[in-house]
């Protein structure tokens, strides 16, 4: 299929390598000193972006990145990704810190997608992260698709294979480390990506130079987006955590260590 476009809905998040600390900011939860922390493209959205770049290389279509966040942070994130793959940015300026209502974000993202000049949605795949590295209910992308009337949706995607007639096959993650194999007759469709199989592309100064000529004007023109939802109340928030439980032992056998790990896993 030729000229198939891909729109990647890409969130930005505080660098997950930082110590993230939830705090109450006014009436809603937030992250301590979030604006001080360096931000990155949400790693899940990153996988979607790199897969999308490979796909449009194949189809000759165009790659769009749609993102909502504080302008200064979007600018910072663009410095780290714009050398990797060519894309056009469509951005909205919002204080998207802390924990936002995924529906409000989905509404705004869908609006941005609708505003893309000349985009034929029937010839477009909508990509994004299946989950978020630091926050997110895992529902935003699904709602963006619903608002735009795109009902073919796949989540936890690791691979897409295009056929000449525009149909495609998708591998979706399911339990037990296996994949669900699905076929779809063609665009439009929503694909929420897991990790995929592609490595992060190297930095290419030529791509960066070209991208920045359109990214900076896009950021300068970014309109404010209202993400407030006065009806929403948060009862609790939690960040994804990597828990480390270190124990120093001497003189015990590999079998005993293995048994202890099995017991620990069973207890969880």
């Amino acid at each position: 299929m030729t000229n198939l476009n891909v729109v990647v809905c890409a969130g930005i998040v505080p660098d997950p390598l930082q110590t993230l600390d939830p705090v109450q900011t006014g009436e809603k939860p937030g992250l301590r000193n979030e604006m001080m922390l360096p931000h990155v493209l949400d790693p899940w959205a990153g996988h979607a972006l790199y897969e999308a770049a490979e796909l449009v290389k194949e189809t000759g279509g165009k790659l769009y990145v749609v993102s909502i966040g504080p302008k200064a942070k979007l600018q910072q994130v663009m410095m780290t990704i714009a050398q990797k793959v060519p894309f056009q940015l469509i951005a909205a300026d919002a204080a998207a810190g802390g924990f936002s209502d995924s529906k409000q974000i989905a509404v705004q993202l869908a609006e941005l997608v609708k505003q893309i000049d000349g985009l034929d949605l029937s010839n477009t795949l909508l990509f994004g992260g299946w989950e978020s590295a630091s926050r997110g209910a895992g529902t935003t992308l699904q709602m963006v698709g619903e608002i735009l009337g795109v009902t073919d949706q796949f989540q936890g995607v690791d691979k897409i294979s295009l056929n000449d007639d525009g149909s495609f096959k998708v591998l979706e993650r399911i339990e037990g480390g296996k994949h669900l194999h699905s076929s779809c007759s063609g665009a439009p469709a929503v694909l929420g990506w897991a990790t995929g199989y592609l490595p992060e592309p190297p930095n290419n100064p030529q791509i960066g130079m070209t991208n920045m000529r359109t990214i900076m004007p896009a950021l300068q023109q970014a309109k404010p987006a209202d993400l407030e939802n006065p009806e929403l109340t948060f009862t609790a928030v939690e960040l994804p955590k990597q828990k480390r439980d270190t124990k120093i032992v001497k003189d015990i056998s590999a079998d005993e260590i293995a048994q202890e790990i099995i017991d620990w896993i069973k207890s969880k």
């Binding site: 200064a72 910072q76 930095n203 100064p205 130079m209 900076m216 004007p217 300068q220």
Partner: peptide, 23 residues
């Protein structure tokens, strides 16, 4: 770190210069 972020934001905001970390 915070000063560099602030200065870089102003510089990039001018749209006249490209600044690439990780290089």
């Amino acid at each position: 770190g915070q000063f560099s972020q602030w200065a870089a934001s102003r510089i990039l905001g001018s749209g006249m210069v490209q600044l690439w970390p990780g290089m």
